[in-house]
Computed example of a mutant assay.
Amino acid sequence: MKEAKKSKHTAPASKHTLRWVLLALLAVLVLGAGAVGLLLRREMTGAGATGQTVTVTVEQGSGVAAIARDLQQAGVIRFPRLFRWYVGQQGAAGSLQYGTFELEQGASYDQLIQALSVYAAAETTRLTFPEGTTAIAIAQQMEQAGLCTAEEFLQEANEGDFSEFTFWQYLPTDQEAPDRFMKCEGYLFPDTYEFLNDGTVHDYVATFYARFDQMITPDIYEALEQQGMTLHQLVTLASFVQEEAGNDQDSNVAQVFRNRLAPDSPYPRLESNVSSYIQSDEDNNYLWNWVAPWYGGWDEIPANILAAYDTYSCAGLPAGPVSNPGLAAIQAALDPQPDPEVQDAYFFVTDLTGRYYYAQTLEQHQANVRAARAVNNSL
């Protein structure tokens, strides 16, 4: 008996069936994608508007992500990431305001952007804090403006929870920095701000911290990691650059300090009058002008604080910043671009005309000091 021949149509039939299955799956995916796309489009165009309004408060310093979360929690939108993307596509992030708004649930994204771009009428106080302002001076200015007491501001700034900000995780704890004078010093970013008169102390402090968090970019964190430098060290160094320069000499002063901080430096102390043993109202001295009054007098400063901030006695950086530096000082401390003749300098001195004299050796520095004094005596 001859063997039965296999059907020549078996394989084509299987391929035909597989093709239809794939087409069916593709159709399901297309329909699903279409349904999702339709849902997202209805969200953006406001097709699901309810006609009901809710009150939404946007805190000062809130970014688009925080605003989107507030809108979702209030039931105004359903998809915060989609809202963030749409705002970015429209280039509208910079126009969104803070304040209290009446918004319709399900309104179109264009309507929401328009509503949030109109400054909410509110009683506000506008204050400017120059670069290099200390935490205590900031608190005093807030009190003078009638927004809160200086004590309330400093207590919240030093003891409140601000873990929503990226930089907060990089701050040393009180156990890690037992000799630090104030946790908030250095991180209250100096700028001009509009404060709601009926705001909370927490919101006031968060305004400063939000700005600082914005200034410290991923590139800065990456550079810190590459240098083996902590954020606290950077801000501490920047505060001295701010106080000793705060001008076109930022990089040169930063280079001198970094030379002193370098391994095997012959001069391992900053020796800056900005924070030293000097007890004179004529000098800008952190210990004399700010720390001593806080404790009730120079002799009342705790010994560990005095030792940790006197840059003529402590090696390396002191326990913390001595002011709140601006971005230029921070950038100079991170990556100084000094003049060639300052590259290897360990000393500098200034005269009353604002001129800076740099030196590599102590002998050169002493000669510069005499030259600066001669200029001062001639004025």
Rank of each mutant, 00 (worst) to 15 (best):
81 R>V: 08
241 V>N: 02
233 Q>R: 10
161 D>C: 09
154 L>Y: 11
19 R>Q: 14
136 I>G: 00
29 L>G: 09
315 A>S: 14
316 G>C: 04
346 Y>A: 01
51 G>W: 10
346 Y>N: 04
286 Y>I: 00
200 T>L: 06
94 G>K: 11
93 A>S: 14
171 L>C: 04
126 R>V: 15
132 G>V: 03
256 V>I: 02
259 N>Y: 04
312 Y>G: 10
347 F>M: 09
312 Y>H: 10
115 A>H: 05
197 N>Q: 14
356 Y>W: 05
114 Q>A: 15
135 A>K: 01
211 R>G: 12
11 A>L: 15
36 V>G: 09
76 V>N: 11
264 D>C: 03
158 N>W: 08
46 G>W: 07
283 D>Y: 14
234 L>Q: 04
329 A>N: 09
252 N>T: 00
74 A>S: 07
142 M>E: 00
173 T>M: 09
261 L>R: 02
287 L>I: 12
171 L>R: 00
323 S>V: 00
66 A>G: 06
112 L>N: 04
324 N>I: 04
316 G>K: 06
45 T>S: 14
160 G>V: 02
8 K>D: 15
159 E>A: 14
92 A>P: 02
237 L>V: 08
57 T>N: 07
204 Y>S: 02
109 Y>S: 09
71 L>M: 08
262 A>L: 03
174 D>H: 13
235 V>L: 07
99 G>P: 06
160 G>D: 02
115 A>T: 11
302 P>H: 06
134 T>H: 00
346 Y>P: 01
136 I>L: 12
279 Q>G: 08
18 L>I: 15
209 Y>V: 10
121 A>N: 13
209 Y>W: 09
12 P>M: 12
159 E>Q: 15
352 L>E: 14
201 V>D: 05
177 A>N: 12
378 S>W: 03
44 M>L: 15
130 P>I: 03
338 P>F: 02
52 Q>M: 14
57 T>S: 11
185 E>P: 01
204 Y>G: 04
215 M>K: 15
327 L>R: 15
19 R>H: 14
140 Q>I: 08
233 Q>I: 03
147 L>D: 13
99 G>N: 08
107 A>F: 03
302 P>C: 08
125 T>F: 01
103 L>G: 05
288 W>E: 00
150 A>Y: 08
340 P>E: 13
327 L>N: 11
302 P>N: 08
316 G>P: 09
34 G>E: 11
76 V>H: 07
151 E>L: 11
159 E>K: 13
344 D>S: 12
334 L>I: 06
18 L>P: 05
209 Y>A: 09
65 A>C: 03
277 Y>A: 02
321 P>I: 07
46 G>P: 09
345 A>Q: 04
351 D>L: 06
71 L>W: 10
21 V>P: 04
271 E>M: 14
101 F>C: 03
370 R>P: 00
200 T>K: 05
93 A>L: 06
214 Q>H: 14
270 L>S: 03
373 R>K: 13
259 N>T: 01
332 A>Q: 02
188 L>K: 01
324 N>S: 06
156 E>Y: 07
92 A>D: 01
71 L>Y: 04
